[in-house]
Design a protein around this nucleic acid. Structure first.
Lengths: 159, 159
DNA sequence: AACCTAGCTTTAATTTTAGAAGTCAGTCAA
DNA sequence: TTGACTGACTTCTAAAATTAAAGCTAGGTT
């Protein structure tokens, strides 16, 4: 199976992984959330090759995650900005950051977060909207849809 | 810059991306959270090649994300389980799932979540622990540590 | 006139990955 | 007690992705 096949699976984790599940795309998203918008700044801040950056930006633009817009006609100059779809990836990047801070960090937290609403420097966490309590792997259970369940059963049956 | 360089950056998003930022690793994590533990089941459920799976599992084991344990001495059989470090990736996978559901899905949600604490079928969300309000890209602001700020300044200065 | 900048694209070499096939230890069934 | 089978891999080779370096375009600056 090529990686293209992932994007046609029922599972939306697979689809999301096919689109944004690679380290350079994650680096680009980090930069976007830190306020970077220009090609050369992405290059400098991520250290990736221009070829790769160009390809990734195209992929993200095609998917609707980023939008390319001219900020100068003469000379022609472009910048990249997250669309609403792109901004919705914030929890993904923040979750990665928090995991990295906790398990891969040096004690210092390179990126702190200020909640504009209340002004606090804070680390958001996953909570259950029903009861308001924090939620994690231990107190949750996955429930598969019929379609996804069937797909998995079929895969399991190849004897 | 090779990808190895990402894992030595100050930024913990970069470090996390270097370790779990690839689509197959994300598929493995999804399977772990769905209760898969055995080599061949990972193969069948993800569709990846055995070579890749073997390499990824080794990388994850070396990093401490999964633990390999014999569940049978004779014949020797092994299974893979998430460590605490691995289980801590739950918010990352769930965030991806939610984003996929919202932006890449068919309307149906392949994986539903039950909060064991209150029994509700729910979609957890990021909230600020200080004020309890939901938090997203719009109402947050990044604040860089001195070290990370300096690293970025240096990168920006290559004229 | 000569050089600079931003935003790329092209090319060639290198590295990584995919897929198929093979290995190995042990079990089971005849 | 041979022969097929299972789980968990490893090896091999072709195909694909990535890198570094250079080049290009459309202007701007000294």
């Amino acid at each position: 199976m090529g990686r293209a096949a992932l994007s046609t699976q029922i599972c939306t984790v697979a689809r999301a992984a096919a689109l944004v599940g690679d380290e350079w795309t994650i680096m680009i998203l980090r930069e976007m959330f830190l306020g970077t918008h220009r090609f050369d700044d992405f290059l400098r801040q991520t250290g990736m090759s221009s070829h790769l950056l160009s390809q990734r930006l195209k992929k993200l633009e095609t998917a609707g995650v980023v939008r390319r817009a001219a900020y100068s006609q003469r000379p022609p100059r472009y910048e990249y900005r997250l669309t609403e779809m792109g901004r919705a990836l914030w929890p993904v990047v923040i979750s990665l950051k928090q995991w990295g801070d906790r398990w891969l960090g040096d004690g210092e937290t390179p990126i702190g977060l200020v909640h504009k609403g209340c002004g606090a420097v804070t680390e958001p966490r996953m909570t259950c909207p029903e009861c308001g309590e924090p939620m994690d792997a231990h107190d949750s259970e996955a429930r598969l849809s019929q379609g996804f369940y069937d797909e998995r059963q079929r895969a399991g049956k190849q004897t």
